[in-house]
Nucleic acid binder design. Structure first.
Lengths: 122, 122
DNA sequence: TCGATGAAACTACAGTTGTAGTCACTAAGG
DNA sequence: CCTTAGTGACTACAACTGTAGTTTCATCGA
């Protein structure tokens, strides 16, 4: 069971999943473009994530080096599961069906997924 | 853009999507088993949903008849989109790939999805 | 007619989230 | 050595959430 991660916190996680360890300032730099958060905001989010033990903070002189303690895949698995459970009764097929019907799938997507499934069986 | 619906509120929506219109008491009865919320809690949630104009409240004597104003499909579409955007960069294929790798797909699921995709193309 | 009952409206309250401000400390540079 | 810039720690605060309690008003049955 992975701790609940809020939207803003998730943004921070994505940065750390891409590269770690990073200091607070480095993380702030990397989200600055996309989100425009202040350094303080980023630090608060890092603290909250550390408090939940979702990231680790390694002291490095007067600052910390932050790294994820949870794999992105683990997190995605847990959150995907919850999502599918809540909205599609735990079945993945209705989700895909829904996305398909909602025209969220291009022909290329379809081909890609078909290939993927073929590999799974083979 | 569908208004944000919280987890508890969503539970109420599911009831109303299944049958509507319903009074507060009727809704409470239908969630009682699953969630064990008090009637007051259900009424609060109904008020909040009505305030967001996600459900409508039709006066019926001294009580209200509540009905969804948003289709379940519309809601699912909007929330699925946000989910896929946030976690899988907006691409459905990585989501399916992830579910597949995470062993969330049974053989039956795979067959079902393949069939679905065949229909989509045909 | 009058009190009990049921319904909505209003109020409550702690925990989470988004978004910082401020304080205190430490290391590094002049 | 002393100032200063960069850091973490602590504090703030409103909106949203989960979960009700309380009040008020209308109505239905005796």
């Amino acid at each position: 069971m992975v701790e609940r991660i809020s939207d803003a916190e998730h943004e921070i996680m994505e940065v750390l999943w891409q590269k770690a360890p990073l200091t607070a300032t480095e993380v702030a730099d990397r989200v600055a473009d996309a989100k425009g958060w202040s350094l303080q905001t980023v630090k608060t989010l890092l603290s909250r994530l550390a408090a939940k033990a979702v990231i680790g903070a390694e002291r490095d002189g007067r600052r910390f080096q932050y790294s994820p303690l949870v794999e992105r895949d683990t997190y995605l698995a847990s959150i995907s599961r919850k999502f599918v459970d809540r909205l599609f009764g735990g079945r993945v097929t209705p989700l895909v069906a829904h996305l398909a019907e909602a025209d969220e799938l291009s022909d290329d997507d379809i081909r890609e997924i078909e290939e993927l499934l073929r590999e799974l069986k083979g």
